[in-house]
Simulated assay, not measured.
Amino acid sequence: MTVKPLGDRVLVKMEKEEEKTKGGLFIPETAQEKTQIAVVVAVGDDKDEIKVKEKDRVMFDKYAGTQIKIDGDDHLILSMGDILAVVS
């Protein structure tokens, strides 16, 4: 499936979280924090508003966006206003 965001929206792919601590302890999914960093997959067509590009790692508001699954992977469609920073 191909998803092309519109306007000032950005499609991002969620990064997988570590399931173990550095000491080797397993962390159950219910105890893990929701990740707030993702990789930009596609951007909308509002070039004046969008300040990120494909393959940028971005940090976003914790409860922002609309969650979708594409080919079994978790993605979010975010408004540009929900993106807080580019992470390098």
Rank of each mutant, 00 (worst) to 15 (best):
R9K: 14
A85Q: 10
R57Y: 14
D74W: 06
V58R: 00
T66M: 04
V58K: 00
E17H: 06
I83E: 05
M80T: 12
D82S: 15
V12A: 01
S88E: 15
D73E: 15
Q67H: 08
D61M: 09
V52H: 01
F26H: 11
V43R: 01
V41A: 07
E17N: 09
K16F: 14
D45K: 03
K62H: 14
P5R: 02
D74S: 08
V39P: 02
T30W: 06
V43F: 00
M59D: 10
D74M: 07
L78M: 11
E19I: 12
E18P: 02
V86W: 04
K53C: 14
E19P: 01
I77A: 03
D61Y: 06
V10E: 02
M1N: 06
L11K: 03
L6H: 04
L11A: 03
V41R: 01
D48I: 03
V10Y: 01
E49V: 08
E19K: 10
H75C: 15
I37A: 00
D61W: 05
I83Y: 03
I77G: 01
V43M: 01
A42N: 15
G7Y: 07
E54A: 05
V58S: 04
G44L: 01
V86C: 11
L25R: 12
E49I: 04
I68C: 09
S88A: 11
V58H: 03
E17M: 10
K20E: 11
M80G: 12
T2Y: 04
E15W: 04
K34N: 11
G7L: 04
K16H: 14
L78C: 07
E18C: 06
G23P: 02
G7D: 13
I83S: 02
P28I: 05
G23F: 06
V52K: 01
G72W: 07
L6R: 09
S79P: 11
K53D: 14
K34I: 15
A64E: 10
K62F: 13
K62T: 15
K16C: 05
F26C: 05
M59H: 05
S79L: 09
G44E: 02
S88K: 10
M14P: 00
K53H: 13
D48H: 06
E18T: 12
V39H: 06
D45F: 00
E18Q: 06
L25I: 04
G72D: 04
K20V: 11
G7I: 05
V87D: 12
H75N: 13
Y63P: 06
E49C: 12
L6W: 14
K13V: 13
G24I: 02
K20T: 14
I70T: 13
G24W: 01
L84I: 15
D45N: 15
V39A: 08
M1L: 12
D8F: 02
V40T: 03
P5M: 01
A31W: 09
I83W: 00
R9G: 07
D56M: 10
